[in-house]
Nucleic acid binder design. Sequence first.
DNA 1: AGGCAAGGTTTACGTATGTAAAAAAGGGAG
DNA 2: CTCCCTTTTTTACATACGTAAACCTTGCCT
Lengths: 345, 345
Amino acid sequence: MSKPRINTMEELSVAIGVSRPTLSRFFQDPSLLKAKTVARIEAGLAGVEYVPNFFATRLNRKSTGMIGVIIPYLNDLFFTKLLASVESAAMQAGMTVITQCSHSDPAIEARAAETFMSMSVDGAIVAPLGDQSDKAVHLRLRSRLPFVLMDSRPSTMPDVDYVGSDHDQSTGLMTDYLCRVGEPPIFLAMPRVNFNALEREKAYIARMRHLGFDPVVLGAGLIRENWHFEEHGEAVLEAEFSQGRLTDRSIFCANDRVAIGAIRAAARHGLVPGRAAWGGLRIAGHDDYPLCPFLNPALTTVAQDTDAIGRQAVSRILEIIRGEVADEVPEITLFDGQLKLRESA
Amino acid sequence: MSKPRINTMEELSVAIGVSRPTLSRFFQDPSLLKAKTVARIEAGLAGVEYVPNFFATRLNRKSTGMIGVIIPYLNDLFFTKLLASVESAAMQAGMTVITQCSHSDPAIEARAAETFMSMSVDGAIVAPLGDQSDKAVHLRLRSRLPFVLMDSRPSTMPDVDYVGSDHDQSTGLMTDYLCRVGEPPIFLAMPRVNFNALEREKAYIARMRHLGFDPVVLGAGLIRENWHFEEHGEAVLEAEFSQGRLTDRSIFCANDRVAIGAIRAAARHGLVPGRAAWGGLRIAGHDDYPLCPFLNPALTTVAQDTDAIGRQAVSRILEIIRGEVADEVPEITLFDGQLKLRESA
DNA sequence: AGGCAAGGTTTACGTATGTAAAAAAGGGAG
DNA sequence: CTCCCTTTTTTACATACGTAAACCTTGCCT
């Protein structure tokens, strides 16, 4: 019942009665052939089990049609959203995306980079780890193939193509809002797993100073460098609330997952953050994690435009691949954040 | 300053002064060579920029050392946890994982399968879509290479290797618990995006009958086939609560994301689910989504052992790859769920 | 010194396809 | 019917490495 299996183009050519080079052209671009020939090949193909060999195909081509993406961490909906956006844009451009997750381990990140070079991907989009990232790996990758950083970047690589959010703007936006309608906020820092952590902290401090308030950063001391953000947020605020401190303050969390932990800590102490709530406690986040609207209370936050970031990263890497860029002129694209006013602040 | 770039093994062999076949053996297994030779090659390699060509390497090998994984949806922490577990197990076995997400689109799933066949992955682990999945695609993949289904499976493929949770057990566990300490639960169904949705529903009904209670399934009518689970849970219960119905009942949600929406709906009506709470409303979930402990109230649920599932899927595919199995004897491995008693029920 | 074994080198062929150039076939117009 | 143009086939070579067999070194042992 099953179709006869054919392993090589050679076999296929005798089975269909068309020459192998013609088949080769057919698989690359059927429009190069006469409609009649195309029909004949397609008919033959329908009665047969054949898949062209990926490796042989790419071996002797200039372009592999693949773009490699490295993300630092999988169990975070922010990165999955970003990845989905990248994949969608790449697919639309006819590219195959190879994703590797570095699992917050520099060694794995390096191995992924090695794999990409070995596979001659047409370009690489990398969301780096923080200081742990081996800069030499990024530089080596960049020297070998089109390369763009995404989501966060080291301050030591200011001259590399980069697509991300404007954290001065987004953090400023939220700081402004919180100052305008209530007590100036305290900043609840996040683990320093990437460069954004520090960038947002700095942006908050700068904005507060600009507004004439004293910045206060919380939780920077006991920050462990891991991805258990909720735990971190809860632990820091639990320590405060249990001493009766901060129960009527405004708390701006470095990201939504920290804020989720913060809200949890508040709940354990019978506190309900939110403008209308009794007591004056407010909690805000950053990123617009998909679950924000469903939290209790719904989390006020500032959204990163992950869709735009993903699309722009792909669009930029395609430009570089196609050589449509002046060399040595890296492009930095920053997207604005958008205020999402909900219940918690 | 940068090292001279070398593109082929041939070039490398003249640069180092070792024959190409020797280099080939070096890259595959240095232990085949004398320590002195290995040292010489490594020294040469250190002064040079060379990465073996992935495609050429795999072209003429029997094994590619890759295993392909298809997951249906990225923006769900359950699948990312599962994927992380698979990747970790595969890496430990020295395999490279190629992940493709079908984005809940059968066409993309088919394309991913095609890619895997084309790349001659050593085996494929597939978490299928629901009824939309093209069964022919799975069967074709299975006929070509080692294949195991993961997480959910169609009832029409009972004779295929499968690793997942025992939903009769897990759903029964929660049903038992809810019946024992309170009002028999209503079941809040989830969108039918995969086969687990229906399987859990059936398991609930069977267990309720067995306990002598009348099963009641909610939300099965307005189920849209998409992954907006939280929205679904909130909408269904909003409709009930706003009519004053179900406010003192036990509600067993088909998964945690539905439960998150359910809790949200409750909160909007001033209801706080939980055993100790006033009113008697209880809400429970399924899966142990990573955020469960941080919800307000913390969600009582039954955990799937994603780590075991991922490891077993890899371990099984490796068995098949190595031919350590009697043919035609598919293995079905189901892991037990574990009750996670928290606050909401 | 001669014999022997281990490790390396040479040589040659295989892998499945891309690609280019020359030769042949086909089809339409005059 | 013949010429010309387009499409396809033929032929040949390229891609980067795996693999096997025969040959050559080297060093050790007797």
